[in-house]
């Protein structure tokens, strides 16, 4: 019964894809774009491919465990989870729904275009230890930053303001940068384009 097998696999994919990211529980693995493939290699044996967001992402092991657990709960007898690096994950792999949920969770979603943003002039806020004021009074901060920001601004996930400054290029995880909203003054994480 091919139809039934397809239906069961579809259900398996749904279950695996709905596993929440251990560090960003607001989004699921499917929404994050890290669940690459799921198939049945032999009766009851499910093979899954996951791709890490960052090479050193420590959450990957726990994602693999979670996927294996839910698939077993849904009838898989053997589960093999493999890690694949090709093609490399990009923030463009995050679905629209994933972006919406990130913003709702308080994390400014990555802008489309993946790592290309990095080669554009990046907002550079250089103060004593923290970001420069938005008036561009720091000469290094002023280099090209207004241009890049004007084209595609990062919005504060709290108030929607486009006036934000960079506090640190690396935040609580490698995939995020720490920013502060110049309007509502709240710090927030920005999912960096990769």
């Amino acid at each position: 019964m091919v139809v039934m097998a397809d239906e069961r696999l579809r259900r398996m994919r749904e279950v695996a894809g709905s596993v929440p990211d251990p560090e960003l529980p607001a989004v699921s693995l499917a929404e994050l774009g890290v669940l690459r493939m799921l198939r049945e290699t032999s009766a009851g044996h499910i093979e899954v491919e996951l791709t890490p967001t960052y090479t050193g992402c420590p959450a990957l092991a726990s994602m693999a465990e979670d996927v294996e657990r839910v698939l077993r709960e849904h009838g898989a007898q053997h589960v093999t989870v493999r890690t694949v690096l090709t093609p490399p994950w990009s923030t463009d792999d995050i679905t629209d729904e994933g972006r919406r949920k990130l913003a709702e969770f308080g994390i400014a979603p990555p802008r489309p275009g993946g790592g290309q943003h990095r080669t554009e002039p990046v907002v550079v806020a250089l103060g004593a230890t923290r970001g420069a004021p938005a008036d561009g009074s720091d000469e290094h901060a002023a280099e090209g930053s207004q241009l890049a920001e004007a084209v595609d601004p990062i919005r504060c996930p709290r108030c929607g303001s486009t006036a934000t400054s960079l506090l640190s290029r690396f935040s609580s995880t490698a995939c995020k940068a720490l920013r502060r909203c110049d309007t509502c003054r709240e710090p927030f994480d920005h999912f960096k384009e990769l």
Partner: peptide
């Protein structure tokens, strides 16, 4: 911030 940044870079390298 730098503590976190250096740790994140270390993690990427690891």
């Amino acid at each position: 911030e730098e503590e976190v940044a250096l740790a994140n870079i270390a993690l990427d390298l690891l």
